[in-house]
C-alpha cells in the first residue's frame, strides 16, 4: 500500500514538474492543445459530414454514433494523458535512460509514464467530452441509477483498457524497439474502429475485439445497453455490464507483459 502511495506521489511530482515547465511557454501550450482538439476532432467532423448525406450508418443515428465516439475518445484521451509517454520506451532502451530509472526506488513504469508528461493531451479529452455531452443530449436513454453508473464505469474501464494497451505496447518495445508504430494500430486504430457501430464490420472483427483484444468493452457493449439495442453477436446480457472485468483482465495481461519485458531487459542487457 505504501508502495502504491509512494508511486502516486512520485508520478504527481514528476508530471507536475513537466506541467510547470510547459506553462512557461503558455502560447505554445495553448496552440498545441488546440491543435490536438482539432486533430482528434477531424474524425468527428467527417462523421458529421457523412450524415449530411445519410440518416443512419450501420443502423445507428448520428447521436448514437456520437455516444460511441465520445466514450471511446474519452477512454483513449485519459489513457494518453496518463501514460502516452510510454511510447518512448524504445528510445529509453536505446539511449540508456531506462537504466537511470531502474536504479531509483520507484517502479520504472511509473517513471516512464510520468516523464515528459504532456498536459496538452487534455485536448483530446476535452474534445471527446464535448462530443459525449452533445450525444447525451441527443439520444434517447431511459435514465436510471444503473444506467448512470454504467456510463461512469464505462469511461473508467475504457481508460484502463487503453492504458493496458499502452503498457502492452511499451512491453513489446523491449522486444522490438524500432517497431513502436505498431502500437498506433491498437491505440489510434482502436479508437477509429470503435467510434463507429460494430455492425459495419465483419463478424470476425467483432469477435476479435470482444474476445481477443477487448476494445468492444470500451464503448460498444455498454452503449448497447444504454441505447436498448440488441447485441448482433447475441451474447448474454451481463456482457454489456462486463467492461470492468474486461479492463481488469487486460490490465493483468499488460502487467505480466511489462514484468516480462523488464525481466528480459534485465537478463539480456538489451
Amino acid at each position: 500500500m505504501t508502495a502504491l502511495v509512494r508511486s502516486w506521489q512520485a508520478y504527481r511530482a514528476i508530471s507536475g514538474a513537466w506541467v510547470r515547465a510547459a506553462m512557461a511557454y503558455r502560447a505554445s501550450f495553448v496552440a498545441l492543445a488546440l491543435g490536438q482538439v482539432l486533430t482528434s476532432g477531424a474524425d468527428f467532423i467527417a462523421i458529421v459530414l457523412m450524415f449530411a448525406s445519410i440518416d443512419t450508418l450501420g443502423g445507428f443515428g448520428l447521436g448514437e454514433i456520437a455516444l460511441l465516439y465520445g466514450l471511446t475518445g474519452l477512454g483513449l484521451g485519459i489513457a494518453d494523458l496518463v501514460a502516452g509517454s510510454t511510447e518512448q520506451l524504445g528510445r529509453r532502451v536505446r539511449d540508456g535512460s531506462l537504466d537511470t530509472m531502474l536504479v531509483r526506488p520507484v517502479p520504472a513504469l511509473v517513471q516512464v509514464a510520468a516523464d515528459q508528461f504532456a498536459l496538452r493531451r487534455i485536448g483530446r479529452i476535452s474534445q471527446a467530452t464535448v462530443v459525449l455531452g452533445w450525444a447525451l443530449l441527443h439520444v434517447d436513454i431511459d435514465w436510471n441509477l444503473t444506467r448512470a453508473a454504467l456510463l461512469v464505469t464505462t469511461i473508467g474501464s475504457g481508460a484502463v483498457i487503453y492504458l493496458s494497451i499502452y503498457v502492452l505496447g511499451a512491453a513489446f518495445q523491449f522486444v522490438a524497439g524500432d517497431a513502436a508504430e505498431v502500437q498506433n494500430a491498437f491505440t489510434y486504430g482502436g479508437v477509429t474502429l470503435t467510434q463507429y457501430p460494430l455492425t459495419i464490420y465483419p463478424v470476425e472483427v467483432v469477435r476479435a475485439v470482444t474476445f481477443l483484444l477487448p476494445l468492444a468493452f470500451v464503448n460498444w457493449y455498454p452503449a448497447l445497453h444504454l441505447l436498448g439495442r440488441d447485441d448482433p453477436l447475441g451474447l448474454p446480457g451481463w456482457v454489456q455490464a462486463a467492461s470492468p472485468l474486461a479492463a481488469l483482465a487486460l490490465a493483468a495481461v499488460a502487467g505480466v507483459a511489462w514484468r516480462g519485458g523488464v525481466r528480459r531487459y534485465r537478463s539480456t542487457g538489451s
Binding site: 502560447a27 505554445s28 496552440a31 498545441l32 488546440l34 491543435g35 486533430t39
Partner: peptide, 10 residues
C-alpha cells in the same frame, strides 16, 4: 516555436 503552427496546418 513553430510546433503549434505545425499541428494546425497538419
Amino acid at each position: 516555436d513553430v510546433r503549434g503552427f505545425v499541428v494546425v496546418i497538419g
